[in-house]
Write a protein that binds this DNA or RNA. Sequence first.
DNA 1: GTCTATAGCCTGATAGAC
DNA 2: GTCTATCAGGCTATAGAC
Lengths: 203, 203
Amino acid sequence: MTEARAPTRIQQKNRAAILDAALEVFSSQGFRGATVDEIAAAAGLSKPNLLYYFPSKEAIHAALLEQLLDTWLDPLRALDPAGDPLEEILDYMRRKLQMARDLPRESRLFANEIVQGAPRIHAVLSSDLKALVDEKASVIAAWSDAGRIARVHPYHLIFSIWSLTQHYADFDVQVRAVLGDEDPFAAAPEFMETLYRRLLSPA
Amino acid sequence: MTEARAPTRIQQKNRAAILDAALEVFSSQGFRGATVDEIAAAAGLSKPNLLYYFPSKEAIHAALLEQLLDTWLDPLRALDPAGDPLEEILDYMRRKLQMARDLPRESRLFANEIVQGAPRIHAVLSSDLKALVDEKASVIAAWSDAGRIARVHPYHLIFSIWSLTQHYADFDVQVRAVLGDEDPFAAAPEFMETLYRRLLSPA
DNA sequence: GTCTATAGCCTGATAGAC
DNA sequence: GTCTATCAGGCTATAGAC
């Protein structure tokens, strides 16, 4: 009578391989465009074997989104009300830019989901995400009120950091088509630092 | 023997209805996620009748992209080297923001295509789009050189205008989930104008 | 020009041997 | 746990009547 409730190393390895393959395929094809066959092939498994680990295509996608959402919001969570205002916002921007560089597939997974109306994560956006942004926006507004940074609409400031940083991941092919050989991430950090310093430096 | 080479009014109307329905479906589902049935239903036609007007699903998508690409690049084309630098760039941003507000489906159609690697328009990005951006970037660089606007990386400046304006269309559901009842386009124009004035005003 | 019917393929998911 | 074989349903596109 074996007591093997904890996943074996093979199970852990296969689960991880499936999630990595699914990230690759979902992020470049969207949910409906992705096929279980393609994910299984990328994971080095047969289709029925993949469906032994996850009950359905939907379940793989859900597991991916859930696993990544926390990571995705970490940079904003780390914005410290007790820190130096300009440096806190710049650090937030730097962390987001770093994530776009290091985790472009994750960025495109969310981009696909949201562009198509976020049918599977809309509830989380309206609850968890909104609550977090509300909290941090009021921190930023307080900094403006105290004259420690220039006055800006705090929500649109946060939107701007999202859009500018994720653009380099989500629209990667377009950016590279325009830049040619130049690496997008060569000049992006300095450009964005300049932008936010000029925008936020107290008058 | 009828000489009916020019499309009749019914044909024009049906073609337009198909393209409008296809824009609706492709922009919210992506190419592979969209089905001909869904487009036909939205256009008020049967599936075979739709395929009488267009030979394939691919052909509808191609017609849409081609028709829209010109419109999409018009705001950048209008950037006038002889105009006032700051006002020209602000006007460009305003035109792009207006397009995001008025044509969100078109924005999402491109977003879907590019996020998924632009398999169908990559060639156009590397040729036409790159040529146009190269041209306008050198105009902006010349303005910086002459000290008429502050120094910024001209390509990343253009990327920033794309990403900030299109964010309101492409990530509409997320923006609205965070803002609640507030209309995104209420504060966006002022936020963006402030941003680019502070970024570009000569030191 | 527009329909019904259907061909032919691909998809997600399951059955059952090993 | 992993495979081969396969089902049932959905998909693009076509055939053929009207």
